[in-house]
Amino acid sequence: MTTMRRRKARTWSLLGDVKRKPSAYEAVTAKFHYHFRRDPAPWELDPEMALNRWYLDHREGSPFNVDDWEGYRDPAKLTYKDYVTLQHERELYVDGLVDRFEAVDHAASYSDGWTAAFASLVVPLRFPIHVLQMASLYVGQMAPSSFITNAAHFQAADEMRRLQRIAYWTQVVANAKDASIATTEAAREPWESGEAWQPLRETLETMLVAYDWGEAFVALNLGVKPAFDAMTNVALRDLARRNEDEFIALLCEEFDRDAARSRAWTTALVRYALERDPALADVVNGWLETWAPKGIAAVEAMGPLFEQAPEPVAGEELVEVAREAQREIAGAAGVA
C-alpha cells in the first residue's frame, strides 16, 4: 500500500514548500544536524550528561552563532561523491607527477645541501599537518550545520592527503640519498625539540584545546592555517624552485588548490555569519587578535630553516607571505 498525498513532493518536507527544487547537494546535506538547539539537550540521554554539557557549552553556547546556520552553503557545494570524484582526479594528476619525476630519478639529483634542507624542513611537516587534520575534525564534529561539518571534514581529509604525499616522497629521497630521514625520529625529534619548530608546536597544541566551536574554526581557518599554508604552499614552493626541485614546487601548488577550497568555504561562512549579525565581527576579531599573531610567530621561527637552504628564502620574506595570507583571508571574510 502506498501512502496517498494530495500532491507530489518536490523535496523533503523539512525544506519547506520550495519554489526551486533543491540541488542534490542540498538534498543530502540540509538539516542533518537535528540535534542542534534541540530541547532540552542535543542528545537523547540525561540532559546533563557530560557530552550534552560539552555541546551545550561549546556549540550552542558559543558566541559565534546566528539565528539560522542552515542557509550557509560551501561555495564548492561538495557532496561526498563530488569530493571523492574531485580528489580521484587530482590524485591521478599527482600519481602522474610522481611517475614523471621517478622516471628521471629526480630525487637522486638532490644536492647534499638541498637534501639537508629537505630533511630539516619538509620531513617533520608530517606532525603539524597531522595536528591540522585533528583540528579540522574537531570543527567538523562541533559545527551547527552539516553544510559546515562536511566542508571541515573534507578539509581534514585534504590534510591527510598532503601528509601522505610528503611521507611518500620522504621515502623516495631516503632511498636515493639518506636512509636516516625515513624514520619516525627524523621527524619527531625536531618536532618535539628543534628550536625552530617549538613556536609552531606551541601554537598548534594550544589551538587543539580551543574548544569553543567558533574559536576553533577562527583559530584554525583564519588564524593559523592560512599562515601555515602560505609557508608550506607558497614559500616552500619558491624555495623548492630556487633549489631546482620542481617536483616539490608542483606538489606545493597542488596542495594550494585544497587550501584555496578551505579559504573559500571559510570566507563564505564568516560572511554568512556577519550578514546575519554584524556584531560577530568583534567576536571573530577578538579571537584573531590571539590566533593571528600565534600563526605568525610559528612561521617566523621557521625562518632559519628556509635560510639554511643552498638557495634560501629570507625569513622576512617568509613572514611577509604569511602575513599577506592572513590579511587576504580576513579581507575576503569581511573582518579586516
Partner: peptide
Amino acid sequence: MPALRRSDWYDLARDLNWNLSYVT
C-alpha cells in the same frame, strides 16, 4: 603508478605520536 608500495612508506604517515609540552 608510483614506484613504491604502500608498505614502503605507510608507517611514516601514521607514526605521528608525540609528547605534548604546551598543554597537558
